[in-house]
């Protein structure tokens, strides 16, 4: 595996993404909405002189939970199928580059592009109001940014998996949107109902919930911003009890697993397909 090939292909992927209207639309929406939200937070704090992490700033987590997975999933779903449909994949494979190099470089390139969009949104929002982290300091803010980029990478990885299995871009996009809906909303709504109907114990509910990478992200970010999970009621206290100070690491680990496993499966599916 050649490093210069990887770099060149990744660079090409980034500049491709910058020309992709989907990407531009997502990135634009994310940046504009996070700045708008920052202004809203500022106005809600008013002139009382106190600031903090409240309902309004929690909207940022909502925004991320909505947009970052959508961005990752749909861009990831398009990544391989569109390349195949356009015939550029065969063209590239005819060059002295391996499938693995193309696969990895595209992923890295897309991850950097999406990461750049998220970092821009967060940085501009912070320039607008300067206390997104609820006055908790810049290290928290940087960790939150990193965690958010990781979430986007997770959804990119899942999107990639969809893309490697699907035959056409339209199919891949459809599946990606359904996956997005399930991860973002339907899964949680179902769990909320299940928890009440079947009187789930806090520890069961917690275990099932953090299997969803979006939930892992949400809980990890609350843990970052609030220093504890007591805000999340009994199940949150179970998490603190079970993981203690390693809570953040456990949740980050889940996110990392969600990046690596789908990516590995995607590569296997892809190489099988290309061999045929």
């Amino acid at each position: 595996m050649s490093r210069s090939v990887l770099i060149t292909l990744a660079q090409r992927e980034i500049s491709d993404a910058l020309r992709n209207r989907w990407f531009i639309a997502y990135a634009g929406a994310f940046v504009v909405l996070s700045v708008a939200l920052a202004l809203l937070i500022d106005s809600s704090a008013g002139y009382s002189g106190v600031s903090g992490f409240g309902r309004t700033s929690a909207g940022l987590i909502n925004l991320v939970l909505f947009l970052a997975p959508l961005m990752g999933l749909t861009l990831g779903a398009q990544a391989l199928t569109s390349e195949r449909e356009r015939g550029t994949l065969s063209y590239l494979l005819a060059q002295p580059v391996s499938l693995f190099e193309i696969f990895l470089a595209k992923f890295i390139g897309l991850a950097i592009a999406i990461g750049a969009a998220i970092v821009t949104g967060f940085a501009l929002a912070t320039l607008t109001i300067s206390y997104l982290s609820g006055g908790k300091g810049m290290d928290i803010f940087l960790q939150l940014t990193g965690l958010t980029v990781l979430l986007a990478v997770v959804s990119l990885s899942v999107g990639y998996l969809i893309s490697s299995v699907a035959h056409r871009t339209s199919t891949a996009l459809g599946v990606a949107v359904v996956a997005w809906l399930a991860l973002v909303m339907i899964g949680d709504l179902g769990l909320m109902g299940t928890a009440i109907m079947f009187k789930l114990s806090p520890s069961t509910l917690l275990t099932v919930t953090i299997l969803n990478p979006l939930e892992s992200y949400r809980i990890a970010s609350i843990n970052l911003l609030k220093d504890s999970l007591e805000l999340l009621g009994p199940a949150g206290l179970v998490a603190t009890d079970r993981f203690g100070s390693a809570t953040g690491w456990v949740l980050t680990g889940i996110l990392a697993l969600w990046t690596i496993v789908p990516l590995a499966i995607a590569y296997l599916a892809m190489s099988r397909k290309e061999q045929r």
Partner: peptide
């Protein structure tokens, strides 16, 4: 109100599902 009645649901604070409800 759901969270006051079933504290276990506080786990879903700030989730999109909460906003949807």
């Amino acid at each position: 109100q759901l969270m006051s009645s079933w504290p276990i649901l506080r786990l879903f604070r700030f989730s999109v599902a909460e906003a949807a409800v």
